[in-house]
Design a protein around this nucleic acid. Structure first.
Lengths: 248, 248
DNA sequence: CGCCGGGTTGAATTATCTCAACCTGGGTGG
DNA sequence: CCACCCAGGTTGAGATAATTCAACCCGGCG
């Protein structure tokens, strides 16, 4: 499998699209992005991403599939810290060694690739390049998402949390150029949603049903449609990511 | 007040101590730290830190007092994202403009100071200096704390959350060289604890009482004593910060 | 065919919240 | 100097959100 991938052109598009949403990139930067993504490796669902990708990588990019940063308590309770979507970095810069407090696991079959060259390109010239500037904005956006996750868990009801998360996922997929619009594929089981929202599986299920009954969302199979995104945003106090970080 | 402070030697000690805990600093670095902290400003309790400090600052350090990053929902519900203790950065690098998704407010009378020079010292030489390396570790530790906050809120009971938070505060104060040992001053009212833990004030109160009744903590005035830190750590699955980030 | 992962449902239980009252000590104005 | 006042802590009791446990259903697949 790895061999097969290595001969394939890696789709850098999610990354390119996402970065374009956070800063203006010229053709030179885009070429650099395409070159910087190397040695893709596929990871089976539920397996740890960094183990599969090998040690020592400084920057790891999720090319396709979904993953999650998670922390597991001693008694087995699991909390998903954040979802990692295509075009997101699994890890970036800063931390040399794998972090001990959280692991990143694939939620679906996924492909990750090294992006160390990208990291180096950012460091060059004291972080003064347009690319580095864009990456800073991306980092700020990630920070904002974490702050929102904390607020969701600490101060919102199940109904609000679910609405908020669905809106976030929709926007992030949209920014990465995957499924723009009000429908998207939710390739994860309800247990994973529950672990992200700090809820039991049963209550997650009932909350989704309530949203359906209220006509706010529609679901069929893995497809979710946000029927009334405005209402979802209003009830859950959702602020679009693009309005959180300073887009010039 | 500002004038008075400007003529005073600024205590850089919390910063120095904290950084020393995350990397080895030579006398040169320590001198640099002392010089880098400039123009301290005092902030009254409940006021926003960045407003008080003036705009455009890239790196802002909390010199004394407690502060908190928080997000307030439209209906007034408040969530504290993270506590900012002496020696912590209110903001650092990355974000040029003030972030729109969270504000940092003083929880007690506090003093903040600019640390832009420190930022510049880090950027120099492509982040290859010992100081930059230490700062990277500090950033990783902050990241770990946020992951823990998410896990606390999502998957722990009130009792566990409180234990976990008290242990975290104790360790952080200890690392900054403020009140090492099992006792420390908790200069905030229960409402703020509640907003950090995602609980109501009433339940926060009762949870503290329960911990006291169980002989795990003792409180008198603002002083908290962790009577049985080991038990608290065991019940709340607490992992010391120093074990989370790669201390060499 | 039969199993199994994942979704759905019901009913009892529990954690936590809300509301409302009361208490306390330190500060303040008369 | 005393009476009041207020922020913050504490208590009780009823209400509610969410959990747990257990069962059942369904479609895909070996």
């Amino acid at each position: 499998m790895i061999a097969a991938w290595e001969r394939t052109i890696v789709p850098a598009d999610p990354l390119v699209r996402r970065l374009s949403a956070f800063g203006s990139l010229g053709p030179a930067e885009i070429d650099l992005l395409r070159d910087a993504i190397q040695r893709p490796v596929s990871v089976a669902s539920r397996f740890e991403v960094s183990t599969a990708a090998g040690k020592g990588r400084q920057a790891l990019l999720l090319v396709s599939g979904w993953a999650a940063r998670q922390r597991v308590l001693a008694d087995g309770r699991r909390q998903i810290i954040s979802f990692v979507l295509p075009g997101d970095f699994v890890s970036f810069s800063l931390h040399r060694e794998p972090l001990r407090y959280a692991s990143t696991v694939a939620l679906t079959p996924a492909v990750v690739a090294e992006a160390d060259m990208l990291l180096e390109a950012c460091i060059a010239q004291d972080y003064a390049t347009p690319l580095a500037s864009t990456m800073r904005t991306v980092a700020a956006a990630e920070d904002a998402l974490l702050a929102h996750q904390v607020t969701r868990l600490g101060r919102q009801t199940a109904y609000e949390r679910m609405s908020h998360l669905l809106l976030e996922l929709r926007e992030r997929l949209s920014l990465a150029g995957i499924e723009p619009g009000d429908s998207f594929t939710l390739p994860i089981i309800q247990e994973m949603l529950a672990d992200a929202l700090g809820l039991s599986v049963v209550h997650t299920n009932r909350t989704l049903q309530q949203l359906r009954r209220d006509g706010l969302i529609r679901m069929s199979g893995m497809k979710v449609t946000l029927v009334d995104a405005a209402a979802l945003a209003a009830l859950s106090d959702y602020v679009p990511i693009t309005r959180l970080v300073g887009r010039s």
